[in-house]
C-alpha cells in the first residue's frame, strides 16, 4: 500500500463512522429525488396539456424539462452541502494534534493533500452514482437523449470536485470546522456572484474575465451537452490551483 492508499483508507473509515456523511448524503439524495420528482410531474402536466390541445401524442423533451433543470438546481445544493464534507479534513487533524503524527511520518505533504482530496471526491462520486438511479428508472418509461445526461454528470463531477478542492484549502486554514465550512461556502458564493456580475457587464473585457473566473458559464455549457476543452481546463486548473494552495498552507503552518 502506498501512503496515499493508507491515508485514503483511513479517511474513508473516519468518514463512515461519523454522522456527517450520512446527513450530507441523505440531504443530497433527498433533494435530488425531490427535484427530479417535481420536474417529472411538471413535465407530464405539460405533456397532458399539449395532448388535450392538439389531440395528438405529444413528444416532450425530458432532457430540457427534467435533467437540465435538476442539474441547474443541484449546483446550488452542492454549494450548501459540500463544505460540510470538507470542513473536517484538516481542521480536525489540527485540533486533535494528529497532524503532528502525519507530519512526522515519512510521507510528504503532497501525499497528505492528495489523499485528503481523493477521499472526499470518492465519497462524492458514491453519492453521484446513487443518483444515477433516477435517469435509469426514467429511461424505462420515456426515451431521451443520454448524451446531455452524461455531460451533465461530468459537469456535476467537475463542479463538485472543484468545490471540494476549495473546501480543502478552507479546512487547512483553520482548526475550527464551522469557520472552515463558512469560508468555503463564502468563496464558492463569491465565484457564483462573480459570474452573475460578469454577465451584467456583458461584452466588456472585465465582464469576460469575471465570467471566465466564475463556474457558471462553464457549468452551463456542460449541462447543455457541449464539451469544450476550455471548460475542462477551467475545472482542472481550478482544482490544481486549490491543491497547490492547500499544500502551501499546510507547509506554511509548520514555519509559523
Amino acid at each position: 500500500m502506498t501512503p496515499v492508499h493508507t491515508l485514503v483508507a483511513k479517511e474513508l473509515r473516519c468518514f463512515f463512522v461519523s454522522p456527517i456523511v450520512y446527513v450530507v448524503g441523505a440531504v443530497f439524495l433527498g433533494i435530488f429525488g425531490l427535484l427530479s420528482y417535481w420536474a417529472v410531474v411538471e413535465a407530464s402536466n405539460q405533456a397532458l396539456r399539449m395532448m388535450q390541445m392538439t389531440d395528438t401524442f405529444a413528444q416532450i423533451n425530458i432532457n430540457d424539462l427534467v435533467f437540465r433543470k435538476v442539474f441547474y438546481n443541484l449546483n446550488l445544493v452542492l454549494m450548501l452541502v459540500l463544505p460540510l464534507l470538507t470542513m473536517r479534513l484538516f481542521a480536525e487533524e489540527r485540533k486533535l494534534r494528529t497532524f503532528e503524527l502525519l507530519l512526522t511520518s515519512p510521507i510528504g505533504i503532497n501525499e497528505i493533500v492528495t489523499a485528503k482530496f481523493l477521499s472526499v471526491v470518492i465519497i462524492y462520486c458514491i453519492l453521484l452514482t446513487l443518483t444515477a438511479l433516477v435517469p435509469m428508472v426514467l429511461s424505462a418509461y420515456v426515451s431521451f437523449d443520454w448524451h446531455p445526461v452524461f455531460t451533465g454528470y461530468l459537469a456535476l463531477l467537475l463542479q463538485g470536485a472543484f468545490m471540494l478542492a476549495i473546501g480543502l484549502v478552507a479546512s487547512a486554514l483553520t482548526e475550527n470546522q464551522i469557520i472552515a465550512a463558512f469560508l468555503s461556502f463564502g468563496v464558492i458564493l463569491l465565484l457564483w456572484l462573480l459570474g452573475a456580475f460578469g454577465s451584467t457587464l456583458g461584452d466588456t473585457p472585465i465582464g469576460h474575465v469575471f465570467s471566465y473566473i466564475s463556474f457558471i458559464e462553464h457549468y452551463d455549457r456542460l449541462v447543455r451537452g457541449l464539451v469544450h476543452v476550455k471548460d475542462l481546463i477551467y475545472y482542472l486548473s481550478g482544482m490544481a490551483l486549490m491543491w497547490f494552495a492547500a499544500h502551501q498552507v499546510v507547509d506554511a503552518h509548520r514555519w509559523n
Binding site: M1, P3, K10, V17, R97, E100, L101, T104, I107
Partner: peptide
Amino acid sequence: GYLPESPPLYLELTVHEYLTFVGRLKG
C-alpha cells in the same frame, strides 16, 4: 518514533485500526 505532548489519536478508530494505520504510514 515520536510521542508528541498530546498523543496524536484518532478517537473514532479502535486501537488496532489505529496502529495498523500508523504502521502503514511508517512503511
